[in-house]
Simulated scan of single mutants.
Amino acid sequence: MALFEEKYLTIHHNEDVQCIHMQWTGFATTENYKYGMNTGLEKVKEKHVSKWLADMANMGAISPNDQKWTNEDWFPRLLEAGIRTAAVVMSKDVFNQLAVKKIGKDMTDNSYTMHFFDDLEEAKDWLKDFEPQNS
């Protein structure tokens, strides 16, 4: 059952993996992107999970301003909420791929692990089995 559903995004709580699963389904305006990301963050807090699954296979480009907002505003709040691991299914859109890789590269928090996939099932399997290293 979906926790949130709009034409650009569906958010699920995947109980098998114990994660919030964000399934993007096209282009999201800045307003929709931020609303969707913030809603996902609220679901993390509600469900008390430490894992994040971002399925961006069908997502369009992410603007440079949205990339900056994600790194500077949203990611610190996500980490504060307890997320430590993310699996990202890469978009077919080359501009989205570049943006997501830049966002991942700009992350400097060592308590957070992000891994990229081309296949949703591989991403779920990895996330389900991943155990963070204690520092």
Results as ranks from 00 to 15, higher is better:
residue 1 M to E: 05
residue 1 M to C: 08
residue 1 M to D: 09
residue 1 M to Y: 04
residue 2 A to Y: 12
residue 2 A to K: 13
residue 3 L to P: 10
residue 6 E to L: 11
residue 8 Y to K: 01
residue 8 Y to W: 14
residue 10 T to S: 02
residue 11 I to E: 01
residue 12 H to N: 13
residue 13 H to S: 00
residue 17 V to L: 07
residue 18 Q to A: 12
residue 19 C to W: 08
residue 20 I to D: 03
residue 21 H to I: 00
residue 24 W to S: 06
residue 26 G to M: 11
residue 34 K to E: 08
residue 37 M to W: 09
residue 37 M to G: 02
residue 38 N to E: 05
residue 39 T to K: 13
residue 41 L to W: 01
residue 42 E to T: 15
residue 44 V to I: 12
residue 44 V to K: 01
residue 45 K to A: 13
residue 46 E to K: 10
residue 48 H to R: 13
residue 50 S to Y: 15
residue 53 L to E: 06
residue 54 A to R: 03
residue 55 D to K: 14
residue 56 M to T: 06
residue 57 A to F: 07
residue 57 A to C: 05
residue 58 N to K: 12
residue 58 N to F: 14
residue 58 N to V: 05
residue 59 M to T: 07
residue 60 G to E: 00
residue 61 A to S: 11
residue 62 I to A: 08
residue 62 I to C: 07
residue 65 N to C: 11
residue 66 D to R: 01
residue 68 K to V: 12
residue 69 W to S: 07
residue 70 T to F: 15
residue 71 N to H: 08
residue 71 N to E: 09
residue 72 E to I: 02
residue 73 D to A: 09
residue 75 F to Q: 04
residue 75 F to S: 04
residue 75 F to H: 03
residue 77 R to S: 03
residue 78 L to D: 02
residue 83 I to Y: 05
residue 91 S to H: 10
residue 91 S to N: 09
residue 92 K to R: 07
residue 92 K to S: 07
residue 96 N to R: 10
residue 98 L to N: 00
residue 103 I to G: 00
residue 104 G to N: 13
residue 106 D to T: 06
residue 107 M to T: 12
residue 107 M to A: 14
residue 107 M to G: 10
residue 110 N to Q: 10
residue 110 N to L: 15
residue 114 M to N: 09
residue 116 F to Q: 08
residue 117 F to C: 10
residue 117 F to T: 05
residue 118 D to S: 15
residue 118 D to Q: 11
residue 118 D to K: 13
residue 120 L to C: 14
residue 120 L to E: 15
residue 121 E to I: 09
residue 122 E to T: 14
residue 127 L to Q: 05
residue 127 L to G: 08
residue 128 K to I: 02
residue 129 D to V: 00
residue 129 D to L: 11
residue 130 F to T: 05
residue 130 F to K: 08
residue 131 E to F: 04
